[in-house]
Amino acid sequence: MDEPVRPRTACPSRDGLVIAAIVAAFACLPPVANAIDQPFLIRVGQRVVIFALAASALNLTLGFGGMISLMHAAFFGLGAYVVAILSFHEVNGDSLGTGPLALVGTSHLALSLPLAVAAGAAVSALLGAAALRTTGVYFIMITLAFNQMLFYYFVAQQTYGGEDGLQIPGALDLAGLDPARRTPYFYVCLAIFAVALVGLQRVVGSRFGMVLRGAKQNERRVITVGVPAFRYKLAAFAISGALTALAGGLMAGAEQFVSPAEMSWSRSGELVVMCVLGGLDTVWGPALGAAAFLILEFGLSNYTTHWQLPFGLIVIAVAAFSREDVAAWARRAGWRA
């Protein structure tokens, strides 16, 4: 039944070329947008790059690990809130927390982005350790519930705006660059995205990635040959959560605003849709899926405020007609619920 797990990098140069092509295509956007005098397109492109990073991060667990997580929007929102809250405290001149663990606020993204990544890694490792005790439909439902847990946590934070969200009060700063200057910040995000994608490609092709893909196909067999599959899956979940939080932090910089709405569970569903649209079995597919998703959203919402109706129908059609070989592994992974 199970096909042997081969090294993914049977043709490493091809995947590398596709990644380079995607990054190059994104890089052309600002000059083109300025040339046709539509500078708002840079803002759309900014969203595409950031969500491409989040979807690629999700796909490490979804596509390569076979873990259907519906809580990645929570990691995204967590990263955004870390950046926003640190800036909020710098402007207020007070510190976050008390005692020896108190943190002084900062508006420097060079400090707050790594902290967002660390928070994403810590929270995803903690919640992942609980969720990964289960498989199949239980895992889906638990990740969904955890997503809402973090959502309600931030809704309850009245200091940081509660349900209304938090406008970042100070001017953020990334090593001398103001993120409000769209074009340079776009290129910074693009560079981070490119590095992350190359890193993910290496992770997937490594022995770690082979264990992960092996566990997706047949976890019991991986355990039987003496590999602790749980640890590998948890590590992948934490890497994925950390990168998603990084995307969220970059988004906070771009928008100067965070809100619990960004981490609602439907956003988690949208990230899954992006991955499926682009294809689950390559590192670069979800980036294309994110681009397709956001361009579709942008295009449809220009025609009608009820764009979610045709969009929902498209999602249903994708579910009905997408390739069955993707289904085969998930059924195997889920059947043991």
């Binding site: 259907i68 439907s266 129908l313 249903i316 579910a319």
Partner: peptide, 16 residues
């Protein structure tokens, strides 16, 4: 079908 497809189709239904 897989749980992933079930999640997708019922998510689409919510939007619709």
């Amino acid at each position: 079908r897989s749980h992933l497809h079930q999640v997708l189709v019922t998510f689409g239904l919510i939007l619709v």
